[in-house]
């Protein structure tokens, strides 16, 4: 029986070796290890053996069984791996083919700039306020120290709807409205972005509609050096840490003193080039200390409170920052233009 088992083992292992598919391998398993298989047959015949032989043959039979089973498992793993490999090889794709596109959109460049500026001032403790685009003469002009017949009204050509109602020419009326609401009872630290309108003929550098962001900080003991500090931080974050700012005198009816802020030209680093008209400086915004009459009209005591205000044009800033050569691009909405600024 021993010889018989050993012969069976040899035979079975050979068949395992020869099997080339999982099916063949399964046949071998059934043939040799199944209930009707030869090894089982051998074991069935064990009753005829002597007491001494029984455990020896039994052990041998189990060993043979084990070895055949192990060989089958190992062969099976091998075949499975080969088949998987074959399947995977067949599944190979051309990864250089184009992907399935997803529709992509993005913000308007002006929105990106406005939000960037908003976030920057929010970081300095400012809140964002909004107001109507159609304003009263009072809030657009009079509350800002621009009485009717004031020569400075010429600086801003206005779209009137009636004598008293107009398209706002700046977002400063939002400041006047906010201060009026607070009635001089506490400090105000705000920026107001929005659309504004002027009687201009549209060309490369003028638009009858454009965007403005104005800022206001009114509190006890606000100093002009604070204005300079805040604007310097703004300029450096917006245009780069190596930008310098300078203030020079200007005039706005709602501030006194009034200044304009220039930043050193990025193109030539202040050396003078065609972008900065050889001055080394580029005008970015207007600012100043809030005029005491404006404070008074809004209910603040100018002896106790002081403040600064500033105003800038995101259109112009976008043009400078991204080299946009025509302001009309912002309002034409050519998809090719818009998409250029969708990248973060």
């Amino acid at each position: 029986m021993k010889d018989q088992l050993q012969a069976l083992e040899k035979e079975a292992l050979q068949k395992v070796e020869d099997a080339s598919s999982l099916k063949e391998l399964q046949d071998v398993r059934v043939a040799y290890l199944g209930k009707k298989g030869p090894i089982t047959e051998v074991l069935k015949g064990m009753g005829k053996l002597s007491k001494e032989e029984r455990p020896v043959i039994g052990e041998l039979a189990n060993k043979v069984r084990g070895q055949v089973a192990e060989a089958i498992d190992s062969k099976k793993a091998g075949i499975e791996a080969a088949e998987l490999e074959k399947q995977l090889a067949e599944e190979t794709i051309d990864v250089t083919l184009p992907g399935r596109p997803i529709p992509t959109g993005g913000p308007h460049l002006l929105t990106s700039i406005v939000e960037e500026i908003e976030d920057l001032f929010i970081g300095m403790g400012f809140e964002v306020r909004e107001g109507p685009e159609v304003e009263t003469d009072y809030y657009n002009f009079e509350a800002l120290n621009l009485p009717k017949d004031h020569p400075a009204r010429d600086m801003q050509d206005t779209f009137y709807i009636t004598d008293e109602i107009l398209m706002r020419t700046h977002t400063s009326p939002v400041q006047a409205r906010t201060m009026n609401m607070i009635k001089g009872e506490r400090s105000v630290k705000m920026i107001c972005p929005g659309k504004v309108y002027r009687r201009d003929t549209d060309d490369a550098t003028h638009s009858h509609q454009f965007t403005q962001i104005e800022g206001l900080y009114v509190d006890k003991n606000v100093r002009m050096s604070d204005l300079k500090g805040v604007l310097d931080r703004f300029a450096k974050q917006m245009f780069g840490e190596d930008r310098e700012i300078r203030l020079r005198p200007s005039f706005f009816p709602f501030t006194e003193p009034s200044v304009e802020m220039d930043i050193s030209c990025k193109v030539c680093n202040g050396e003078g080039c065609s972008v900065c008209k050889r001055t080394g400086w580029i005008e970015i915004l207007g600012a100043g200390m809030v005029h005491p009459r404006v404070l008074k009209m809004a209910g603040y005591d100018p002896e106790e409170y002081s403040g600064f205000a500033f105003g800038m044009g995101p259109d112009r800033i976008a043009m400078l920052k991204y080299g946009v050569d025509d302001i009309r691009h912002f309002y034409t909405n050519d998809i090719r233009f818009l998409k250029q600024y969708h990248q973060a």
Binding site: F121, I122, G123, M124, G125, F126, E127, S187, K189, Y217, D219, K220, N221, V222, R223, M224, S225, D226, K228, G229, V230, D232, R233, L247
Partner: peptide, 14 residues
Amino acid sequence: LPFTLPSGGSQAGG
């Protein structure tokens, strides 16, 4: 003029 930052109230913007 020096560069300073406002000394008054530290209100949180947002």
